[in-house]
Design a protein around this nucleic acid. Structure first.
Lengths: 242, 242
DNA sequence: CGACCTTTTGAGTGGCGTCAACATGTGTGG
DNA sequence: CCACACATGTTGACGCCACTCAAAAGGTCG
C-alpha cells in the first residue's frame, strides 16, 4: 500500500482499534469521538535506523505516535554538546515539547526501523476542545513528560553512576514489560554512548558498569542483549529499599 | 482586607489588569474572555518563608500564579534523597506537573514570604475548552516547562560545576531582568545547599565556586547579594561563544 | 546574649573522565 | 563470499574534579 517512500495513506480507522492506545492518545475516549480521532490521524511515516523525524528548530506540524520501533530525543547546547533527553518506545507520543512556540526544541532520531502515526497538531488542538476526554489525555501526556524529567533530574543530580544505570535498566524493563515483552530479557536499541549521554556518563563508564554488573551476577550481557538475573539487587542499587 | 490568615478573597478583576500577565495565564486572551478568567481566579494565598504550598502526593486542587515572592519545587527519591527541580519567580504558574493524574509529583515551598493567585484546575480545564487562546497558553506553559527541564538535563549531563553555576546565574539574571529588576545585581533567595541540589553539586562546591568567581573578578558576592561584574566571562563559561 | 543555621575554607580521597590500545561486530563493494 | 574499512565495545593506566570530613567564622532569630 506504499505509494511513495516513507508515506503510507491509511484508509481504515486505526486509533479505535490500536492495541497501543493505552500509552497514546485514545484513552478514555468514547467510541463516536474516537472516529473523529481516526480521521485526524490519516497518515503514517516509516523511518530507517538513524533517520531524523524532526530537527531541533523545525516547525511543529504534527505529533507522532510510535507504531513500532523506538527513537531518541536530543538537545544541543550552543557550543555543540549533545544530550539525549529521552528514549521513546512503541505506543508513546512524541513531539509534545514543541507546543510552546510551535517549534521543536529537540531532535528525534530513530534507533531502529520504525513506523509512526502522524497527528496534525492544529486539528488535534481543535478536536481536544470539543472532546474533553481527549483534552484530558493530552494534558496527561504532557505533564507525564514533566514528571519523567523530574525523575531524570533526580537521577543525574543525586545518584552515582552505578545507581543511574540500575535505574535505567529497571525503567526500560518495566516499560517493555508493559508492552508485552519480557521484563528480564531484551535488546538495547541504543549504543553505550547514547546510554551514557542520557545518564550523564561517558561510554567507557557505561561499558565498565555493565561488565561489573555481569561479574556480580546481576545481569548477563552480550553486546546489546541484556538479561536481568537479579532484579532485587538492581532495585536495591537503584535506591528502592527491599 | 484579610479575613483569615493566609486567605484573601478578591473582589476586583485581576488577571485582566495584572502586570505579570505576560508570564502567566492571560496571554493573548481577548478582553471579554479575560473577565471569565478573573471570575475563576477568585482567591489568593499568602505563604511565609519556608511554608509548603503543596506536598508531593497531594491532590491537585488548583494551579498557582506567583503574585510576589518565589518558591522551589522538590522531588524525593524512595530512599529519601531530595532534588530541587526548579525555582519559580514572580508571575510564573506552578502546579502544572500535577495534571497527569491529578496528584502533585513534587513539593512546593516558599523561599520567602509570597502571595499566590489560586486558579481552580477543574474550572480552568473547562474554560480552556471554550477559549482557544487560553488553551493555547496552557499548552505553551506546560511545554515550556518540558523545554526548561531539557536544558537542565543538558546542564547536569554535560557541564562541569563552574559551567552549571554560570548558567544558573545568567538564567536568574535574565528572568529577573524580564521582570523589571536589575540584571546585574540581585539577591539569591535560596541557600547554597538549595542551589547545589538544583545543580547536582554539594553546598561546599557552590560556595567555593562563588569565591572563585569573585576572585576572578566575574562577580561580587556578599552572603546572598550578588553583583555580576563580567557578564561576558560568565557567558563564555556557560558555553555561549562570544 | 546564646543557640542554631548558613557559609567559608582547608586537607585528603575517590569516582569518573581521559587517553590509549585492542577486540569485536557491521556494512559495503569487489 | 570474502576482504576491507569503519563503527562500536572492552579494558587498563592515570589524573583531576568534585565529594567528604572537619573546623571555624559569620549571620539570624528567639
Amino acid at each position: 500500500m506504499t505509494t511513495e517512500i516513507g508515506r503510507i495513506p491509511v484508509a481504515q480507522p486505526r486509533c479505535s482499534t490500536c492495541s497501543l492506545g493505552q500509552f497514546c492518545l485514545p484513552v478514555g475516549i468514547p467510541a463516536p469521538e474516537l472516529e473523529r480521532l481516526d480521521a485526524l490521524v490519516s497518515e503514517r511515516r516509516r523511518l530507517k535506523k538513524g533517520e531524523v523525524l524532526y530537527h531541533a528548530n523545525d516547525d511543529l506540524h504534527a505529533v507522532y505516535g510510535i507504531r513500532f520501533g523506538s527513537l531518541k530525543s536530543c538537545v544541543t547546547a550552543p557550543d555543540g554538546r549533545e544530550q539525549v533527553v529521552g528514549f521513546h518506545l512503541q505506543g508513546e507520543l512524541i513531539g509534545l515539547d514543541a507546543v510552546a512556540d510551535h517549534h521543536h526544541p529537540s531532535t528525534a532520531i530513530a534507533l531502529e526501523d520504525s513506523e509512526l502515526c502522524i497527528a496534525r497538531f492544529g486539528e488535534l488542538e481543535t478536536l481536544s476542545r470539543q472532546v474533553p476526554s481527549l483534552q484530558r489525555q493530552l494534558h496527561r501526556l504532557m505533564s507525564q513528560e514533566i514528571r519523567n524529567e523530574h525523575q531524570q533530574l533526580l537521577a543525574l543530580g543525586t545518584m552515582r553512576a552505578e545507581e543511574r544505570l540500575a535505574v535505567f535498566l529497571l525503567n526500560l524493563s518495566e516499560r517493555l514489560s508493559a508492552r508485552g515483552y519480557s521484563a528480564n530479557e531484551f535488546v538495547l536499541r541504543m549504543s553505550r554512548e547514547e546510554i551514557g549521554s542520557f545518564l550523564g556518563l561517558k561510554l567507557e563508564t557505561v561499558s565498565r558498569l555493565f561488565s561489573r554488573f555481569a561479574q556480580n551476577g546481576m545481569i548477563e550481557i552480550r553486546q546489546r542483549h541484556v538479561k536481568i538475573v537479579d532484579a532485587a539487587a538492581l532495585h536495591e542499587l537503584a535506591g528502592v529499599p527491599c
